[in-house]
């Protein structure tokens, strides 16, 4: 099965850029353009130290999560032809989405590394924690994809809700702003937005060298819960999806 989803995913990436001259490198430019706007246009208004690093890592993690969630909400609907015409298990489509998002993220990763290098960030052993945090996020991704794919298939309206929420999400997640101090609204959003913790487990070790224990535990618990729900839903509703498409 691994061959099927990997072949389909590489084909998807190629197809999206097939007629362009620089191909998937557009994904890298897209990331750099985004980061550039935040770094040069938004400036370091909030007084965030190492703002370039803050943006580069935060944006990289956010774009990955946003890509996964926005893409998975319509996953089964997009795969209707194959779901209704083949016996491929649903996991093939989930893993196709995972590999597609990882391939896309690799291009953004190059951009992120480039900004880190240019901003003078010095690699340290704490960066290993960031790498582990990224791994944790990728491990949770299939479960999240399953949950959102079922949501989108059974409740079509949710596609619009989730797409809009993810658009707003970029602004209510501390990608390019910091929480500040005291009881400001930013502080409240920072604390209650679950995406914050997924950003911070990757970003904080690189920025400060510290290990954000609470955020790590929070993300791990969310991951385990997502996997439990995903497997239960896959087992209970997997065979019914075909009737809802």
């Amino acid at each position: 099965m691994r061959r099927v989803w990997f072949a389909l995913a590489t084909e998807d990436i190629g197809d999206q850029h097939r007629r362009t001259t620089i191909g998937p490198a557009w994904l890298l430019f897209n990331y750099l353009a985004f980061a550039g706007v935040f770094i040069f246009v938004f400036q370091r208004g909030a007084g965030i130290p190492s703002y370039e690093t803050y943006i580069a890592v935060g944006l990289f993690v956010w774009l990955y999560m946003s890509d996964v969630i926005s893409g998975s909400i319509s996953l089964f609907v997009r795969e209707e032809g194959l779901i209704k015409g083949t016996k491929l298990p649903l996991s093939v489509y989930v893993m196709r989405m995972v590999s597609q998002s990882v391939i896309r993220a690799t291009y953004a990763f190059l951009g992120c590394a480039l900004i880190l290098m240019m901003s003078g960030a010095v690699p340290s052993s704490a960066w290993i924690l960031s790498a582990l945090a990224l791994l944790l996020i990728v491990v949770i991704a299939p479960a999240v994809i399953i949950l959102f794919a079922f949501l989108g298939a059974f409740f079509p309206d949710s596609q619009f809700i989730v797409t809009n929420l993810m658009r707003i999400g970029m602004f209510i997640t501390p990608v390019f702003w910091a929480p500040g101090t005291g009881d400001s609204i930013r502080h409240v959003i920072y604390a209650w937005n679950p995406f914050t913790y997924f950003l911070e487990i990757v970003r904080l070790p690189i920025l400060t060298g510290e290990f954000p224990l609470f955020a790590f535990v929070f993300c791990s618990v969310v991951g385990v819960l997502c996997w439990i729900f995903a497997l239960v839903i896959l087992g209970s509703f997997g065979k019914k999806v075909v009737f809802y498409l």
């Binding site: 061959r3 084909e11 197809d15 032809g81 194959l82």
Partner: peptide, 29 residues
Amino acid sequence: LFNISLGFRKEATGRRNILLRGLINGWQK
């Protein structure tokens, strides 16, 4: 044999489509 063009990719070559379609059918490489 339901939909003969199922899983075909118009941007891929004929040769590549044979591989993709075969994989979708569950054949080994």
